[in-house]
Simulated scan of single mutants.
Amino acid sequence: MAITAAALPLVISVADDGQTALSQFLDRLADIPTPSGPTPRQLLPIVEVRRDADDDDR
């Protein structure tokens, strides 16, 4: 499927919305207790992973 230049902003917007929704879902999920009691946030520290600009050429 070819994406035209006119459709590209819409595709980017949808991808960004999906990433935002996933991030919000995972953030809420981190506060729901596991069957043993503690939440995932209490079990493991949540670390934000960032890619360096240097990683783009790998």
Rank of each mutant, 00 (worst) to 15 (best):
Q24C: 04
M1G: 14
E48V: 04
R58D: 08
M1W: 07
D57T: 03
D54W: 04
Q19W: 10
L44Q: 09
D16L: 08
R41D: 02
R50A: 05
D55F: 07
R58S: 01
L22F: 08
V11G: 00
A2L: 14
Q19E: 12
D16Y: 04
R51Y: 13
R28I: 01
I32N: 02
R58Q: 03
D52R: 10
L8D: 04
D27Y: 06
T34Y: 07
E48T: 10
A7E: 15
T34R: 12
I3S: 01
L44P: 00
M1V: 12
P9G: 02
T4A: 05
D16S: 07
Q19A: 13
G18N: 09
P38V: 08
L22R: 10
D54E: 10
L22T: 10
A7M: 12
V14L: 11
F25S: 07
A5L: 09
A2W: 06
A30Q: 03
A2T: 12
L22A: 12
L22H: 06
E48M: 02
P9M: 06
D31K: 11
D16W: 03
P9L: 05
L26Y: 08
R28E: 08
G18Q: 09
V11Y: 09
D27S: 10
P40A: 05
L22M: 13
V11E: 07
S13P: 01
R28G: 00
L26H: 07
P9E: 05
T39G: 03
A2E: 12
A5Q: 10
L44F: 14
L29F: 09
V47T: 13
A2Y: 10
T34H: 04
L44S: 09
F25V: 12
T39Q: 03
L44C: 12
V49Q: 05
R51M: 13
D55T: 09
R51S: 12
S13R: 14
A5K: 10
D54A: 13
S36G: 00
A2G: 12
D27L: 09
P33G: 05
A15D: 12
L43W: 07
P33Y: 01
Q24E: 15
P9N: 06
D56T: 13
I12V: 13
P45M: 00
I46S: 03
D55R: 04
P38H: 08
L8S: 05
R41S: 09
A30P: 00
A15I: 14
D27Q: 11
V11A: 12
T4K: 04
I32F: 07
V11D: 00
S36E: 09
D56Q: 14
G18Y: 01
D52V: 02
R28H: 05
D17L: 15
A7P: 01
F25M: 11
L43V: 14
R51Q: 14
D52A: 13
A53D: 11
V14K: 08
A6K: 14
L8P: 01
F25G: 00
D27F: 04
R28L: 06
D57A: 06
T39Y: 03
I32V: 15
A5N: 06
P9W: 03
A2H: 11
S36Q: 07
I46A: 02
A53Q: 11
S23D: 10
A53Y: 06
D56N: 13
D52W: 05
F25T: 13
P9F: 02
D56C: 06
Q24G: 05
